[in-house]
Computed example of a mutant assay.
Amino acid sequence: MQVSACFPSERWVVVWFVTVFDVGVDISPLVEKIDDPNMANDKDLLQVVRLLDDACREAGFFYVKGHGIAEPLMKEVRDVTHKFFQLPYEEKLKIKMTPQNGYRGYQRLGENITNGKPDMQEAIDYYAPIEPGKYGDLATPMEGTNLWPKYPSNFDALLKNYISLLRDLSRKIMQGIALALGGPVDAFEGRTAGDPFWVCRLIGYPVSTDILEEHRTDTGCGAHTDYGLLTLVNQDDDICALEVKNQSGEWIYAKPIPGTFVCNIGDMLKVWSNGIYQPTLHRVVNNSPRYRVSVAFFYESNFDAAIEPVEFCRERTGGVAKYEKVVYGEHLIKKVLNNFIK
């Protein structure tokens, strides 16, 4: 069953599996105080930690505000993304994604594959730089240089600044999640995510009627979970398209709320937490009569991190590891190679 309309309320909400509660995740106390040596005694910060635990445990998806990223900047990033996708096809192909450049750059419509089916989207993929040989043979398929378009002229400077800000924000949220799981604030540092890999994916979803019928499918992006630790989604304010699957098997719209990020957890956090937190299936269906963009920032573990259930999470879940060790880079490469038409 699919819910046929967006969430009707403009209140701050968390997307739960069963319903929508009038609860906000204002993470400003976390953003402002997580580095304070006395933060363990701060009631406001601890309340944010409790809300993060509830959201990750019950839904795996939630909205965040009070994150410190200016709303005009969020909009400017979406605006330049719109402008790029409005360029002539020949111009976009100047930064075409290929295996030779580490699967970085522009993907044409239908080139991305989810569950064996072409997605009705075009996109640009950016990855954290990987120096040749840094991880031996592990990262060879992902080694390459990010490709920046000539137009819009402010594209690269804007995106590089935005990525830097989201990287810092994501680290702070992960510190809050570490506390929510009962671990130390620096649990994700060091060999787990002390040198976090990141992916920034700029995605455009055309109007379905603008796509030739023989090339058209019913989804902008098929149902999937994300690969890493945490995802922050900056989506157009006025188009409902992102859907989250609840425990009843219903697809629930993650209605855009201006100034917020939609945040969700990924596969590596499931393994690391020994299943205490589970990623949630989500998909994109653009039934709007307008072109939609979404800018998704994926905060990952170290590229070469061997992720396995951490001891204090195993102790909370019966003492036995429920998941085998996963090397993040291997997991990512397998997904990338399966999701791209060569």
Rank of each mutant, 00 (worst) to 15 (best):
V23M: 10
N38K: 11
A178L: 02
L230V: 06
L138H: 09
D236C: 13
Q2P: 03
D218K: 15
K270Y: 00
R171P: 01
H82M: 10
T140G: 11
L52F: 03
N246L: 00
D54S: 14
L138W: 02
K150F: 00
R191F: 00
Y328N: 11
Y253G: 11
R283T: 00
I173C: 12
Y227N: 08
V25H: 09
F261A: 11
G24I: 05
I27P: 07
F84C: 03
H282T: 02
T98I: 04
L73F: 12
D137G: 09
Y89D: 07
T231Q: 07
P149R: 04
A139L: 04
A241H: 09
V77A: 03
N41H: 06
W272Y: 15
V64I: 14
T98N: 07
E111D: 14
K255C: 15
T260S: 14
G204T: 00
G228S: 09
N246S: 03
N287T: 05
K334N: 07
V3R: 06
T231Y: 01
Y151V: 04
K245G: 02
I239F: 06
I257G: 13
D53A: 14
R216G: 04
P37F: 04
H67D: 08
A123E: 06
L202N: 01
E214D: 05
R283D: 00
P141N: 08
T140F: 02
E311D: 10
I211V: 15
V80W: 07
V244N: 01
A254P: 01
G116L: 09
V23F: 07
H331R: 10
V284C: 06
V295D: 02
T19R: 12
M39P: 04
Y106L: 10
P129Y: 01
N302R: 02
Y151T: 02
P196L: 12
M174V: 12
